[in-house]
Amino acid sequence: MKPPRRKGPSALAVGVTVVVVVAHVLAWRATEFSPAALVRGWEGMADFLGQAFPPDLSWRVLGPSLDAALVTLYIGLLGTTLSVPFALGLALLAARTTTPGRWTYQAARSLLSFLRAVPDVVFALIFVTAVGLGPFAGVLALIFHNTGVMGKLWAEAMEEIDLGPRDALRVSGASGIQTAAHAVLPAVVPQFVGLLLYRFDVNVRASLVLGLVGAGGIGFLINQSIKLFRFDEMATHILVVLVLVVAVDQLSAFVRRGLT
């Protein structure tokens, strides 16, 4: 018996392939992607790195660097923690399993999308104009942006649960808030904590960038040392950042392992 002939690629597959290839060609040209330029300019890079090493590890630089790194950590911590109530409230409205109605669902989803679409750096610039340069603007920026991201992640976690326990309580006459509190939320606690730790991790790194626009922390010091051409000090700050990021990453990975 003859096996059926293998089908050739469909018109859709051909079309998608063409579009993807064309997009990459356009992107290559628009970003002026050129390995040759990188090879030609290697001296500039070597010069820069030569000035950065060895890093200036004197206490005059390292002391303030550690202080600023701690501020960066604090910005990330407060930005994450203080966004929890807002993210939770919006997530409950924006999850199909808990939302009270279609309009609230759409409104909450739109608000979350907006908060997510505005980068935290832009929020930071806006809040700097209100509260001045400093870490407080960074915390505010993270609260807003993180509410958008974490609210969406939490809402999706709630949409993926088994609806049986919720239905069982709904049959018994429990209200929407009661079913959320006793069937939906208890089922997603591990996912929520995992996502919270992941966002803390991301936010500590984000608060670094916020420093670059004047919202305090070690990013601010990195920016300053670049402007003063003190690349050896910059290298010190970057080393401190490296240690901070790895420590936070390890900590959250450790907690998440213990969670499941």
Binding site: G164, P165, D167, S172, Q178, H182, A183, P186
Partner: peptide, 20 residues
């Protein structure tokens, strides 16, 4: 499929019947 909240204690699950 029983549909209890697996992470809660048995008695908390029983109490949930009275939420209404």
């Amino acid at each position: 499929q029983i549909h209890l909240v697996r992470r809660r204690s048995a008695i908390d699950n029983v109490c949930a019947g009275a939420l209404g």
